[in-house]
Simulated scan of single mutants.
Amino acid sequence: MTLQRRILIFAVSLAVLMAVGLIAVLRASSAAHERDRARADGPRTDRGDVSLAPDAGGRRIVFRNMAWGPHRDELATVAADAPERARTVSGVSCLRFHAAGGTGICLRADRAVVLDARLKEVSARPLAGIPTRARVSPGGHLAAWTVFVGGDSYAGTDFSTRTSVLDLRTGGFDASLEDFTIHKDGKPYRSADVNFWGVTFAADERTFYATMATGGRTHLVRGDLAGRTVTTLRENVECPSLSPDGTRVVFKKRVAGLPAEAPWRLHVLDLASGAETPLAEERSVDDQVVWTDRGTVVYSLPGDFGADLYAVPADGSGAPARLMDSALAPAFLG
């Protein structure tokens, strides 16, 4: 083989290798661009039927869609085991939402709307302030919601809340938990500065837990709807969420030394032993966390479109992981 032929073969080989490399770079760049564009545009949505029925199509997440576009703020659903897939949106808009037992509670700017399993309005109540928390009992018979009636953040101290509970079985309505009899530290207690928020219901459809604030401190309380009483259990507990087996609550706790605008860390409290477990999420979470099952909790943090959802083990192990972009107020059904 002549020297000229060898040089020609080398040049051709080099050109082929450069072309292959260029194609690989272009493909990688195109894929990255597509990912960036998809994130900029938000998750794909398709209009369709959204059901709150426990057995409708397997385990699902129903949530408020936060992606920009014509379906922002609408209730949407995805399969719980494929949260990254295209979302089915409902046309029903909510600012806060929760569902269980085939019943949904949808907070809008001026009213709380009870939804049936097909997202049809069952009843509605006017709201006295800015919607912030909502919960439905495991059996779907009770709904609770909290609104701000002064101020706009739990992080400060200049705010007032009103928490209401509706019994869908009887139509009974407690407009404010502040009307309940309070037992604090074993004694009857009354104060003009009492506020409640963050109700979470037990499976007996009677017992609930919530946050009570008074005298500059927050308390975990256990409530009895039939007796219209609340009893303080522990200080420095906010926005509790009861585990599916009723043995633990996950909550946000104020931690000394953290910034005033980001003061919370997630903890789990064992109700029987009183033991607290800090979770692996080190960012400040201002949310009422939900349980996906006995071992995992999900919560929101600020994101590109308002909020993203993250999951973390409930035993303090592991690390937080992003579950969904552009989503808020999830309910795990089925």
Rank of each mutant, 00 (worst) to 15 (best):
L3E: 09
R6Q: 07
S13R: 01
M18Y: 02
M18K: 07
I23G: 07
I23A: 15
T45D: 14
A67H: 06
T88F: 00
S93K: 13
G102F: 09
G104A: 11
C106D: 00
L107F: 09
L107T: 04
L107Y: 09
V113M: 00
D116N: 14
A117C: 00
A124M: 13
P126F: 01
V136M: 00
V136H: 11
G139N: 11
V147R: 04
V149M: 06
D152V: 12
T157H: 12
D158R: 15
S160F: 05
L166M: 01
R169M: 12
T170H: 13
G172T: 12
L177Q: 06
E178M: 14
F180V: 04
G186I: 05
K187W: 08
R190H: 03
F201N: 10
A203C: 06
R206W: 03
G216V: 04
L220T: 09
R222A: 03
T231L: 11
E238Y: 09
S241T: 02
S241P: 01
V249M: 04
A262P: 07
L266Y: 02
L269A: 06
G274L: 14
P278C: 09
V285M: 09
V289L: 01
V298N: 12
S300A: 13
S300D: 08
L301Q: 06
P302C: 01
G303E: 09
D304R: 10
D304Q: 10
D308Q: 10
D308R: 06
Y310H: 10
A311F: 09
A314C: 12
A319N: 06
R322P: 07
L323M: 02
L328A: 14
P330E: 03
